[in-house]
């Protein structure tokens, strides 16, 4: 047999083997095996990520500057916390108005429980926008849990293994988040464009949205908790002949520089199944 023919046959056999694995994985039969292989890999990944981050920090900042940077980051965290508090207070004020209009109806708002974890890598495929975090089902993380930073929402858990999990970022075109505008109270649906821009669509034409207005999760649909900051309005597109207006959003989180995230562990997303006729 000619060498090239035997090579094609060999390649065909390997492709069949890989296709078999692909079918098995689509059926969910390989999840335990994937988890088993990922266990040591996630350890190595965390170790490398931490060492690289430490080396980068050491190389980029002299020692005295390092302490100042630490102080600045503490102050930044404090500012972020205070901003969060202002948002929450404004939200409460707006809510009080709504609630008094609804005859003192009180809504229970449970405290969120957070689990901090480091980001151990990005999706290897440059066509997908997701992150890997260094915690998985071993520490109670499950599919659908929202993920935030101190600046705002970054996405939700979409794949879980024992030691690591994959987060679908809100900048992924497949993600959709129900949001509301803080001042105008208009609702909309946030989705990422294929070029990575974030747009809020399906906004009522009568709503008056202003530039720099804060966009928060609305909690509609039950996928995300209410009142998590998402971003600010960059510009608004409103055309009289269209049913809805759109807004371009500047995300509150810098998605290129996420090192630690918080997973909201006590939030159970609603599983809405499609009804069959």
């Amino acid at each position: 047999m000619k060498r090239s023919t035997s090579q094609v046959l060999f390649a065909g056999t390997l492709i069949l083997l890989a296709a078999g694995l692909l079918i098995l994985s689509q059926g969910g039969y390989l999840i335990p095996l994937q988890g088993l292989i990922l266990r040591p890999l996630s350890g190595i990944q965390s170790w490398i990520t931490l060492r690289v981050a430490a080396t980068r920090d050491m190389l980029t900042s002299p020692r005295d500057v390092a302490s100042l940077r630490g102080e600045i980051s503490q102050l930044e965290a404090e500012v972020a916390r205070l901003q969060q508090e202002i948002i929450s207070l404004r939200e409460h004020a707006a809510e009080v108005e709504i609630l008094s209009a609804l005859l003192d109806y009180a809504r229970a708002q449970p405290e969120s429980h957070y689990l901090a974890t480091i980001v151990i890598g990005k999706d290897i495929s440059p066509f997908l926008r997701s992150l890997w975090i260094g915690r998985g089902s071993d520490t109670g993380i499950s599919r659908g849990m929202p993920v935030v930073t101190d600046r705002g929402l970054i996405g939700r858990v979409i794949e879980v293994f024992p030691t690591q999990a994959r987060i679908q970022l809100i900048t992924d075109p497949d993600a959709a988040v129900n949001v509301k505008f803080q001042v105008s109270r208009a609702d909309g649906v946030l989705s990422a464009q294929l070029n990575g821009e974030l747009w809020v669509d399906l906004i009522d034409q009568n709503a008056t949205i202003s530039q720099d207005e804060l966009v928060l999760t609305s909690g509609l649909g039950g996928k995300y908790p209410i009142d998590i900051p998402v971003g600010q309005v960059l510009n608004i597109r409103r055309r009289d002949y269209e049913l809805f207006q759109q807004a371009v959003i500047q995300p509150s989180v810098d998605f290129d520089d996420i090192e630690i995230v918080l997973v909201i562990t006590n939030f159970r997303p609603l599983q809405i199944e499609q009804s069959t006729p």
Binding site: A18, Q34, L38, L41
Partner: peptide, 20 residues
Amino acid sequence: LFLDLLSGLPFGSSAIILVL
């Protein structure tokens, strides 16, 4: 297979591509 483990692409797809 290692790439697919660390990616959201279907497990096995990159393996097929790399054999090709």
